[in-house]
Design a protein around this nucleic acid. Sequence first.
RNA 1: GCCCGAGUAGCUCAGUCUGGAUAGAGCGUCUCCCUCCUAAGGAGAAAGUCGAAGGUUCAAAUCCUUCCUCGGGCGCCA
Length: 566
Amino acid sequence: MKELIAEFILKALRKLKIKKSKEWVLSKIEIPPNTDFGDFAFPCYTLVDEFKISPDEIALLIRKEIKKFPQTEFDDILTEGPYINFFIDRRNKARELVWEVINKREDYGKTNIGKRKKIVIDFSSPNIAKPFGIGHLRSTIIGNSLAKIYEFLGYKVIKENYLGDWGTQFGKIIFAYKKWGNEKELKKSKKPLEYLMKLYSKVNKDKRCDEKAREWFKKMEEGDKEALTIWRLFKELSLKELERVYERLGIEFDIYGGESLAVRDGYKIIEELKEKKIAKKSQGALIVNLEKEGKGVCIIQKSDGTTTYALRDISTAIKRYKKYKFEKMIYEVGQEQKLHFKQIFRILELMGNEWAKKCLTRTHGLYLGKDGKKMSTRKGDIVLVEELVDKTKELAKKEIKKREPKINKKELEERAEKIAIAAIFYGDLKNNPAKDVVFDLKKFVSFEGNTGPYILYSYARASSIIRKAGKIKKDFVIKELKKEEFDLVNHLSKFNEIVLKSAETMNPSIIANFVYESCRLFNEFYQTSPVIDSENEVFRLALVESFRQVIRNALKLLGIETIEKM
RNA sequence: GCCCGAGUAGCUCAGUCUGGAUAGAGCGUCUCCCUCCUAAGGAGAAAGUCGAAGGUUCAAAUCCUUCCUCGGGCGCCA
């Protein structure tokens, strides 16, 4: 369509003795901000130098020429100030869109640009010495969404949960456990991680424990039996709890990796780094100095001989490349780790790994406390993911009961759970990942406006119409197309380009915003245009069905499930 | 000090990459709409020096420069 417009404009310009290339014209054609203005527009102030008259007059002149050409593609061509606005055959567009969505179903919006090339996504990756707090929720939700987006585009995605299961913090916990804890209490405790957590915060309060913690960590690295037995016990308990949460959230991984698996190969890398003279000794530690490149200093091995997470990350990256030969590897991590990964990628490159440039980070902002400052485990303001889900779920239950007092218990539970998860996932994903989010439970749990429940509610309304109307037919004739109908159609037709853009920018919020806008337009349509028993019933039903399909497809990419009733 | 982010309505944010029509939403405030497919909804109103100043351009929230504010990072935490 754009091509055709460009040709018309070129032809008109030629008549008016102005020379321009087709590329130039194409680059100037835009889509108006509002469908009232038309479907495509050509701005004429781009031609003031050539014409030496006002842009409004240029628009009139060009339009006059175009009007002379025989054409059937456009419903209308109008000028509005300096713009020439083209109106396409909207009924035709509506019919095509609705057919396409209904025929393609869950494949609507899919492409195969990925061609099964591999993308490794490292996400969630919680520190398992701590309970699963909302600090790790962002990575979990965003990473999960990115994985689904790339899969939708035909990539083979490998989802890896790279557990923080090694390091000095385990030394701390072991020390604290040996000093203040015991196995009986740990096993008795319903939430063993909370028990460990108490020990952890106790040990953090006392700086004098750091030395002991490092000693215990050193023992772990040296293979000390007692240390490793305790460590294994903790890891097992953590994993159990984590898996339960992941299941609730509907999140799956292809692989549970972990730093502990990277230690052995780490020693080989130390040798390589020394040999290639990339790393050197400094103050007793082994470091790679990247200060000249503005990337600071990276510590590879501490002065007591223990490994660092930098080393383990390098080791893991190499192992992954050997295994997958990935096209891309994305680390979904907090922004505070940006420098760390810059260092890792650079060191990999210095080691001669060409593929280092295929590694990138998708960094997200932090959840901040109400004071606008970082929330920290140490301050004790940790919010557990399960607690958050439970609280949100309680609220959802209340709302459901208001509307449906007689609902049976099983259905209530299921529906409330899905609403809660939608609220939490959507509440996160609607934000640009790069930005910090102030954590406000009230906002998370809010069900009005731009929220997960609003989306689910809109969907449920649409489903209700379909339920009552019965079968959808495709043999409709659109007599008249209302603005609310076309705006919805027009918006739904952008789904594919939205998915591509969100993949390109690794930003699921683009899809979330698309979903919101779709629902807003649907609700407007819902309010103004009765479906059942209307003159346009067949078309409107098909449109409602298209809306449902697109929302389902889009929400799936965000890791959110729809519900039919609300 | 240096390096990354961010600064848009009272609050929370879209829009900035790729400059163009009246800067959009939600929450909150005010006014309407359930004899009608789910009011967790819709319509309308009030509310903006787009952090500041320069610059580029026919045109700047958007691009460039400088500055200010906030957050994060910067050698043995991850």
